[in-house]
Design a protein around this nucleic acid. Structure first.
Length: 269
DNA sequence: CTGAGATCCTGTCTGC
DNA sequence: TGCAGACAGGATCTCA
């Protein structure tokens, strides 16, 4: 289940397919977050993959003509199998056939999406995204300025992909704990020092997760289909009523904007 | 414009 | 064991 680090890991694992040709595609279920366009198969068949990159939580295939924009949603994952293998799973929605491999998109809840476009940069899913969290554009000054007019809580704010991309529900709690900021705090009340720590914490948490192979909780399937995964050491997420690793206070669970949120009552002011 | 709540979908877990 | 209800890592949409 993907947040930015899982998407990054998946994207990296697809790199061997750069320079390869997509021979054909089979679609078992067109009803993802948006219905897959009629011409999708035609648009991508017999195209060479020039590069595979990531923007926010999207994987972008730059083809010899056009782009594929893929989002894994809440439950999407990709696996790679030999062309002659016959093992399919429930919810295998899309199968890309290459010369000797197939790339399979599986997504239980179908919150993921896939589009073909001639212009990825201006695509409606891409054009309004905020800065990459690990880029220089995401810094203290930027966060301070953009936060001045927002009255939502700070946790909801950093999960807004227009503010900064890639921060999901887990990393939002973890980053706020690391920065010692209470997730309930109203965004325009945080000061410059808070912004400085928060930017640093978001970058650090994401970097660590990426370096660990991009996994967080529960099972994350590698592209080879194996279930091997690392578990990042989460300090607050999922630790309701357990001891804070920093001050030995108790971790609280609350619901903010309909999402589970965990924080330490004592550390996070 | 903002922000809160509903919503898409399937599977798993908890409590009665 | 059955069954209802809550919940799950996303993000758009609808409405006030």
């Amino acid at each position: 289940m993907p947040e930015l680090p899982e998407v990054e890991t998946t994207m990296s694992a697809l790199q061997p397919f750069v320079e390869k040709k997509i021979v054909s595609v089979d679609i078992n279920n067109r009803h993802l977050r948006w219905k897959i366009e009629k011409d999708f198969e035609k648009n991508i068949s017999n195209k060479k993959i020039i590069s595979i990159t990531r923007r926010a939580k999207y994987i972008i295939f730059n083809l010899s003509d056009g782009f594929i924009i893929l989002h894994l949603g809440m439950s999407g994952n990709i696996r790679i199998q030999d062309l002659n293998s016959n093992t399919y799973k429930k919810h295998d929605h899309i199968i890309f056939y290459l010369k000797d491999k197939k790339i399979i998109y599986n997504d239980i809840r179908r919150f993921g999406s896939i589009h073909f476009t001639n212009n990825a940069k201006d695509h409606f899913l891409i054009k309004n995204l905020g800065p990459e969290p690990l880029s220089k554009d995401f810094n203290k000054k930027y966060l301070f300025n953009i936060s001045r007019n927002s009255k939502t809580n700070i946790k909801n704010f950093i999960m807004n992909q227009k503010v900064v991309v890639g921060v999901g529900n887990i990393y939002a709690s973890e980053a706020l704990f690391d920065a010692r900021i209470n997730p309930n705090n109203i965004t325009n009340s945080i000061n410059e020092e808070d912004c400085k720590r928060l930017v640093k914490s978001i970058k650090n948490i994401l970097k660590i997760a990426i370096n660990m192979g991009g996994t967080t909780l529960k099972d994350f399937y590698s592209v080879d289909g194996s279930e091997g995964y690392f578990k990042i050491k989460l300090k607050v997420y999922g630790r309701e009523n357990e001891k804070c690793k920093s001050c030995r206070g108790v971790i609280k669970k609350i619901v903010l904007n309909q999402r589970s949120t965990f924080y330490c009552l004592d550390c996070q002011k």
